[in-house]
Design a protein around this nucleic acid. Sequence first.
DNA 1: GGTTTTTTTTGACAAAGGTCAAAAAGGGAT
DNA 2: ATCCCTTTTTGACCTTTGTCAAAAAAAACC
Lengths: 187, 187
Amino acid sequence: MDKLFRHLRDYHPLTPQAEQALADEFEEITLGKNEFLLQEGKTCRHLYFLEQGAIRGYYNLEEKEITHWFAFENDFVTSFHSFITQEPSVENIQLLEGSVLRKISKEKLTALFNRFHEIERLVRIAYEKYYIRLEERYVNSQFRSASERYENLLEHTPHIIERVPLGQISSYLGISQETLSRIRAKT
Amino acid sequence: MDKLFRHLRDYHPLTPQAEQALADEFEEITLGKNEFLLQEGKTCRHLYFLEQGAIRGYYNLEEKEITHWFAFENDFVTSFHSFITQEPSVENIQLLEGSVLRKISKEKLTALFNRFHEIERLVRIAYEKYYIRLEERYVNSQFRSASERYENLLEHTPHIIERVPLGQISSYLGISQETLSRIRAKT
DNA sequence: GGTTTTTTTTGACAAAGGTCAAAAAGGGAT
DNA sequence: ATCCCTTTTTGACCTTTGTCAAAAAAAACC
């Protein structure tokens, strides 16, 4: 649980009462490689915190799996669209490695917002960070060439290369696997 | 001011006290076509609400202007990265038409968060909506062909076509202007 | 250690989209 | 209407990336 709270403090420091209330609600779960946290068509009712392990989010488009994000230690994980709207998810969330997570349901989180302004503030601040991250990925994906995107990955998130098969990285970068392989051969 | 509050209520209803506090801080401004709300290198200190008009955000990449978003009536406008981090902006925000806006400074907004939990909640909910929007744009931009992206624009945001020159639309879609022109010729 | 199975690389070719240059079409002003 | 200036379209060609198929390499299994 420590890992979670150390991470939360980076967003916004909490009073002991608020920390305790969160500690009461965040439940630990352990899942094995290739298991699913969520499958398309199901509504995502939880927010997860990934303490240890690696996870990907992907969806199926024309027979292909498109991986659009990865998560590692200290990342929050959910199908954001489904979690927020409480509509069925179009994406799947699958473990790349055996992982240790903490989870909290949307209802419990919402109830905590009502009890603790500071918890809602923490989430507001976390959203800001995640928004900025996504914005950077967006600009990077749309206006850079395939090899620039790969170099950017090497520079900013090299751990992805170590822990994820190439086919998933290529779809994450929006490149065919063959092209990515050729880009790598050149460097 | 009505327009702003009608819009805010769609996110989250506010008490009269909170509305009044916001009304006291949101200042009206009017700017003409081609004027700048923000230029790169400057830090964005305000959040704007666009009551009437049209605005674009763009940055310069290798001699070219890359337009990466448009805003119209009832949109919030800011250089999100700069506003949140209070670091110098890499983007420019320019009016496409003469526009009427409301603005509030970051300090004043933060002060309101402290006074009114409900205002911070409203912003938290607004972030969720904007995050989902960006996520959709991201997936759409990265995994669809040029003509699919254009068709998607026609279907979901046709007003852009009416109010924005083609060169800016093409860069928004991540296509060269010539290719966009050819796509249009076909349909 | 040898055999499957999966992942990555390579080759040949095709398709999508970009670039450069020039022509055409619009939009104001006078 | 005419001139000037901006925006859009068209043509020829080039570059990047994708696709299909097969080989090579790596990993997992017995």
